[in-house]
Each structure stands twice: as structure tokens, then as C-alpha cells.
Design a protein around this nucleic acid. Structure first.
Lengths: 344, 344
DNA sequence: CTGAAAGCGCTTACAG
DNA sequence: CTGAAAGCGCTTACAG
């Protein structure tokens, strides 16, 4: 594999000399920071092209005290929702020629989050987005100074000045109502332990039950990584008479619960209806095909970047920051065959 | 949510003044670049702690022409293997206080890869790792100058000076031999179209067949994102008499193929054995539980970082770069119940 | 062992 | 509209 050497990178001085102007003029041309004589503009443009000049983001960052970059702080990286959201943010960053980085935070190492955040902020990113789905995310928020553009993804509604929340709660609400609408007397829920955010599928489930005047049965809490716990939850559910409908926290949990239910002698969907969440690719292939809820994580990430970029622009232009804003990215209900009308 | 303001960040001058020394001395202390008087060391240490001083990575980057960062270029980001590998690289970066970033490349936008790579290199990362699983990765390699520390993940064996390859090919070989060992006369393969790399599961399958003196049947090529194509492949396979064993390119493909096979009237595993790859979390819950191959992607990423870091260290110390090296990260065969002895 | 000086590649007042 | 100068926060010869 040939690896081409790259000729000593040209700097602003080189293009200035070639264009017969001063470096500041080139800078002004590049940044539109002041009007530049038409003739010179052209000579500069030529020189830039000829030399293949690209401004050093590092030098700019030092001079501006701000790097053309956006950093995201994420927990549970490796998780479907997190990955997809980051792809959205990266898409946005790329479109503006911003550098993009993700930093993974862990709830198991809360003591490290402060120093990690500070290290990253030390690179003077133009803006940061934090996914606030758990305590590590919340802690990160506490370490971020007021004056840096920030958008929160997830978290409690109205928590940050700029926020994009996906329809977790709404989705949970919808799935539960769907099950109730099928005639089930109550809906059980198996999901992950709750973090600091209100905007959760679990709360959506709770909302729907409360609306219907039903006392919520205890949540069956399971780990996100060990599906055996979900299988076990399914087995337990199999022993509960009125457990005819269950809302699983995600599709993986759903299939595990179904397995447990069957081990416990219940048929799905004939005896008990089970719905998932996230609409993972394997859902339609399952037996029965999984009814689920599809979220638009990539869009969530893209919207987050847009919100961030507006702040960055305003800041650079010395304008007032944009209006405080919260956006909600809706998902879609996907009906398949894992839930049936209550046949009690 | 309270957002604490951060006091105007101290710079090296501040600690120098407080410690009663010059800035260069602080720098030397920090970088171990020259001996510093014991007494001064202490005063400096105190001042740093008192002020909460952190060197600006940006200023260092400008002075050193090198940022304490590692950038990865990945294609198919959002993919299981890619995500896990990146987590491994990030782990390594974090442990050395390096900034970490991923840049997603796309085969659909080959024209953009050069400029994207150059933009990222413009930040003077200390090193980069590229995942070479397809043409975008290969193209990225061509844009990276010789003098920057680099490690290739994937790609053809022996291609880069520093390389860590996972056991894709070995794994494909092993799965196929397993099936052959079960008495099947041949093994069909449904997988993604091949990229520029030799190190693929598909080639492993080919190797095993060749070893056994069997002419490889044509590969059934399917898209990675549209499982319907895999279902269709399953249906086609159902019509082929000697198709009693199939090696699917990954677990998702495997379950789709199984579905297609069943639609075509074949039982799995009774009539035809199907094995997957990647050992995804849903595999054991499938009916039948999927026999698969588990790769250690996180470890792959960590090894890649280590290899990179060795180069970075050597370079900074003005030493010879380490010996050229290729590492292989092995995976594990996971036997479950989706393959049975040939009962022809 | 340690300062003063100069430089990394940009940008931003300051004067025209 | 445009240059010369100074500065962003570090590091690295250069002298002692």
C-alpha cells in the first residue's frame, strides 16, 4: 500500500506572498471579516487553490480561543440509540467542516467524569452536546461552564436552554395505550432501572396507566447487558395471572421476555401480548414479528447539531443567543404481530 | 440545572509567576524535558494544584505541531463491529489523556474522503487508526502521509507497517470446517459483497472449502441493511437440494436466511444447518439458538491504540519507530443449536 | 539547571 | 480597504 507523502503544508503567509497581499488580508478574505478588494480576492483565491492551502484549525483555535469542533459526551456508548444519535451529530458537524469527537462517560466511574470533561473542554470546542440519560450525563452538565454553546439530548423537558428530546416518554405512553386499547386490563413493564431523566419510556408507561386509572404494577427491573435477567422476568410474568400484556423496554428485552414467558408455559401472542421498543432490525423476523416503536435517533442528533450551530453562529457574530428552545423528535408506532386483543 | 461558571482559566504564566520561576521551567517540569531543581519542582507542583492549571492542548498542539489526540477513520459507522472497535480505541486514548475522535467515511461519497481526511489531519493528531474494510478505508490510507503514526485495523495481512487484524478470515474458515465436520457435503454462503480486503469471513469460507477439495458454490450476495434480501436468499437456498449447510455472514443475516428457508419449506436445523457470525446478543434467544463466532472487537481497538501509542512515544523521543508489527485478535467459536450433523 | 527570546499559524485591534 | 504589530499559550534552541 503506497502512502503518499504530503508536501510541507502551506501556511497563510505563503498564500499572502503568492497573492501579493498581507496575511491579515488573506485572513479577512477567508473569514469574511472585512471587505477585500475584488482584484485581490481573486489573486488570493488563485493562490489558495494553487497551494492547496487549508487554514490550520489548531492555530485558529488558539487565536480564537475556539476550535471548529463539536464534542459529544455520551454514556452507554455502544448502545443503539447512542450510536445512531452520534451519527446524526457527526453528519451535522461534517456539513460545516467541524471536527467531531465523542467522549464516553461511565456511571461506574463518576469520579472521572469531571476531569474527563475538563480535558475535552481544554480543546476549546465550539460547542458540546451531552446525552443526559443517566447520572454521568447529569454530572457532565455540572462541569460545563455557562458560556459554551451546549445542547442537551434527552434529560427532563425544559431542563436546558437548548434541548432536543426524543419521544421516549411519548412512545412508552403510546405503546401502553395501544395494549390497553386491545382490551388488556393492565400492562406490565420490564425495563432498565431509571436514571435522573423524566423523559423515559417507563414514565410514558406510567402516564398511560395513570390516565386509565390503573394502578401500575411494579416494574421488573433488568440489566441492559444481561438478557438472562429478562428471560427470568418473563418466567416470573408467566406466573402472574393478570399479566396478559407486557411492554418491554426494548426489542432485545422483548424477545428475552417472550422466551421466558414460553418457558413458563404461556403462548405469545395468544396468551400474552408483548411489545418492544426501538424497532431493531431483527424485530420483523422474530416469531412472532415484534410490534415496536421506532425512534429517529439520527434525526435527533442532526437537530442537536443544528441547535448548537445556531448558538455558535450567534456567538461569533456577537449577537444575542437564539431563543431558548426545546425540540421533540417523534417516532413511529410499528404494528406487527406480537400483541393481540385481550381474549380473557 | 445549575451550570457552574468556570473561572478564567489559568495559563502557564500564572503558575510560573506563582511559583517564582519562568514559564519555560514550568514547561520543562511538565514535560520532563529537562531537569528541574527539586525545590522549584515543589513550588511548581503547588502552584499547579492551587490554580487548577491544565496545559492548553491547543497551544501545545501549535507549538509541537502535534495534538494529543487520536483520530479514527471508520466506514460503516453504526455497525456493531465498528462501534465496538472504536470503544476499544477510545479506552486506550482515555487512559493516556488523549482526545479521541471518529470520522465516518462513506463508500457512497468517495469524492469526499480526501478532503475529509485532510481536514481531520489539519488538527495534527498524534496518530490515526483506519479501519480498512472497504474502498473508502483504502482511499483514506492513500491520503495519509508517511510520517504520521498509523495503524490499520483489518485490511490485508501485511499491508501496513502496523496492523491489527481480527480473525475474520480465520473465523469464516472455522465455521465452515465445523459444518463440513458435521458431514455436510458443501457449505453455502450468504454475505455482503467483498471489499478490497482479503481478511474476510467470506475468504475464510473459501479457504475451508478449497482445503476440503470442494468447489465453492456461488456466494449469495446481500445488502447489510436490507434483511429482506437475506430472506430471499433463504428462499432460494430452499430450492437447492445440496444446500444442507449455510454459513451466514452475520447473525442478522442468519436469522433472515432461516426465515427464508422455512418459508421455502425447509426445517432448521433438521433439514439445513445455519450458522451466523458475531455472536450478537439475540443469538441465544433465537429458535433455534444460533451457533456463531464471537469476535473481540473492543480488544482489537485497544490493541490498535497500543500499537499507535508505541509509535507516538518513539517519535517524540526521537527514537527509531518500533518494529513493524501485525497482531491478530482471535475470536471464539460459540456452539449452540442451529447446526446439526448431516442426515442425508 | 534556568531565563530571555523567538516561533508555531492564525486573528484582531490600531492606524492609515 | 489594508499593513505592521501584538497576542493566543505553549515549546525549543540559545546562552549562561
Amino acid at each position: 500500500m503506497p502512502r503518499n507523502a504530503q508536501r510541507s503544508t502551506p501556511v497563510i503567509k505563503d498564500v499572502a506572498k503568492l497573492a501579493g497581499v498581507s496575511a491579515p488580508t488573506v485572513s479577512r478574505y477567508l473569514n469574511g471579516t472585512a471587505k477585500v478588494n475584488e482584484e485581490k480576492r481573486e489573486r488570493i483565491a488563485q493562490a489558495i487553490k494553487l497551494l492547496g492551502y487549508k487554514p490550520s484549525v489548531v492555530a485558529r483555535a488558539l487565536a480564537n480561543k475556539e476550535m471548529d469542533s463539536v464534542m459529544v459526551f455520551a454514556t452507554n456508548s455502544g448502545t443503539f440509540s447512542t450510536n445512531m444519535t452520534s451519527i446524526g451529530v457527526e453528519n451535522g458537524a461534517r456539513s460545516k467542516n467541524y471536527l467531531f469527537g465523542v467522549t464516553t462517560l461511565s456511571e461506574n466511574r463518576m469520579d472521572e467524569v469531571r476531569s474527563t470533561v475538563q480535558m475535552v473542554l481544554g480543546s476549546n470546542p465550539a460547542g458540546v452536546v451531552v446525552y443526559e440519560y443517566d447520572h454521568a450525563g447529569a454530572e457532565a452538565l455540572r462541569c460545563i461552564p455557562d458560556d459554551i454553546p451546549l445542547v442537551i439530548v434527552g434529560g427532563n423537558a425544559g431542563e436546558g436552554r437548548y434541548q432536543v428530546i426524543n419521544s421516549e416518554r411519548e412512545g412508552g405512553h403510546l405503546m401502553t395505550r395501544y395494549l390497553l386499547g386491545l382490551g388488556h386490563r393492565t400492562v406490565y413493564h420490564v425495563g432498565r432501572p431509571q436514571g435522573p431523566s423524566d423523559n423515559t419510556r417507563t414514565n410514558g408507561w406510567r402516564d398511560a396507566l395513570a390516565e386509565a386509572g390503573i394502578v401500575a404494577p411494579p416494574v421488573l427491573e433488568v440489566s441492559a447487558t444481561d438478557l438472562d435477567e429478562s428471560v427470568e422476568a418473563g418466567r416470573r410474568l408467566a406466573r402472574i395471572d393478570d399479566a396478559t400484556a407486557v411492554f418491554a423496554g426494548n426489542d432485545e428485552t422483548a424477545i428475552a421476555v417472550i422466551r421466558g414467558l414460553r418457558e413458563g408455559g404461556r403462548r405469545v401472542p395468544e396468551d400474552v401480548s408483548v411489545v418492544g421498543f426501538d424497532n431493531r432490525i431483527f424485530g420483523p423476523l422474530w416469531t412472532p414479528p415484534l410490534t415496536s416503536y421506532s425512534q429517529n435517533f439520527v434525526e435527533t442528533g442532526e437537530r442537536a447539531f443544528d441547535l448548537l450551530y445556531e448558538q455558535i453562529q450567534a456567538r461569533r457574530a456577537g449577537q444575542e443567543p437564539p431563543e431558548s428552545r426545546m425540540e421533540i423528535v417523534r417516532g413511529e408506532f410499528v404494528e406487527r404481530d406480537s400483541a393481540r386483543p385481550f381474549a380473557g
